[in-house]
Nucleic acid binder design. Structure first.
Lengths: 226, 226
DNA sequence: CGCTTCTTTGATCACTATCAAGCTAAGTGG
DNA sequence: CCACTTAGCTTGATAGTGATCAAAGAAGCG
């Protein structure tokens, strides 16, 4: 639908202001707004673009035949999602909350000389994604429910957290089931674990969707298996 | 040690014969032989090379401060290992059994025009690795011990299996603890699960290091949560 | 205000970890 | 060639963590 209008300029600086600036500069056709629940792509789709997240939260997941789901990661502002494997998307991607993305036309099979900048940036994004996936591996394979949840909240906080006095407010755009599917737990266990963290004074809840991290150091110790 | 002699030619065709051919063609300095247990690199090492596995089995792992280990993957013939993140290796790598590798000089920060071929191939390898890691995610997060072990044996069989009559022989170069650290289990559970698979007629053991997959379809059903 | 969806809490159960001991096989030295 | 040693594998008994089943609160939305 924006196959002919997508821009070839990539920008995913770490500065969110620059990012928004970039979004305004990019040709209108590159930009896309997603409603909550709307899919950006499905697993197996032919991939002609990579997507840069400007605002909102995306959910990247793989689903088994029997319905079991694994949320690989959440796409947050600044992320580049939809890296293709063999020209296809390797996971489905939908919006957890309203999102704005920029579509970048990308064909890994094309000669790299055509868009050396794009290729180099995608390569860098891919290598970083491998690192992030490896981090998550440790969490998934070798940590308790409590450690998993603590590590997840710290990660999310480092990405989308806002200062709140001396503490850090983290908005959870995704629900408990999403978190559970990300951490290899059940929603009940996620809920219970958050309650536990609250009772031990490490965090506070402000509605079910917002956590305030009261003791980041304590959380960190917990997350790393202290 | 081979910093100045490593070749810049990348080859990781899917054909093992071509691979060996390539190994012979490559300058002598590129090739490296590892004894069992010898490290190729450690986590955090400056990464000037990527390594192509010619023969043997490598173990790529990350270790936490408390000693808990996660084996990210096993490097098998045809694999390209040691993709750097920010110029550093993101995991440690040592030889499970004697190995032969080719070192390819690679600097992701250098202008891609210098070695367009190398960059494109590394990008492709990185994207494929992401796919493989995602596959493993489902296994790690959402599967039972039995499903994990079955999936692992099938994967290994597809990579290093040899025909044995109508069946498939798979040599397990790694020990039970390695498998456990790969699947997020304990060695005891891996052992028990293999026993279980044997008792249900899906596979046979020929010594502890060799499994014969008697019923691949049954295994596949199990692995996918049938 | 009632419906729906999500979250929390409770009770129970199953799976896998843990601790412990025996077993097997390969390697070593007398 | 055969005890002896050692490392890894298997098996057993028990316990703990998280899953499952179930139901009661909250919160959003018509």
């Amino acid at each position: 639908m924006f196959a002919n209008t997508a821009c070839n300029v990539l920008s995913f600086q770490s500065c969110p202001v620059l990012k928004r600036e970039r979004a305004r500069e990019a040709p209108e056709g590159c930009r896309r707004h997603l409603r909550q629940g709307e899919h950006l792509f499905y697993e197996g789709d032919t991939a002609k673009h990579v997507f840069e997240v400007i605002s909102g939260t995306l959910r990247l997941a793989r689903v088994q035949r029997d319905g079991r789901r694994q949320v690989m990661t959440f796409g947050l502002p600044g992320d580049l999602v939809g890296l293709p494997v063999d020209g296809r998307h390797s996971a489905e991607c939908d919006a957890v909350e309203p999102c704005e993305v920029i579509a970048h036309r990308f064909d890994p099979l094309s000669p790299p000389e055509r868009w050396p900048d794009l290729n180099a940036r995608v390569l860098n994004a891919a290598l970083e994604e491998i690192h992030a996936l490896q981090d998550h591996f440790l969490t998934l394979g070798r940590r308790s429910a409590c450690e998993k949840v603590a590590a997840f909240l710290l990660w999310l906080g480092s990405r989308v957290g806002a200062r709140a006095g001396r503490h850090r407010r983290v908005h959870l755009a995704m629900n408990r089931a999403d978190i559970a599917d990300h951490l290899g737990l059940t929603p009940e266990t996620v809920s219970r674990t958050i309650t536990q963290l609250r009772e031990s004074g490490l965090l506070a809840l402000d509605g079910a969707q917002t956590v305030v991290i009261l003791d980041p150091d304590g959380m960190r110790v917990l997350a790393e298996g202290g």
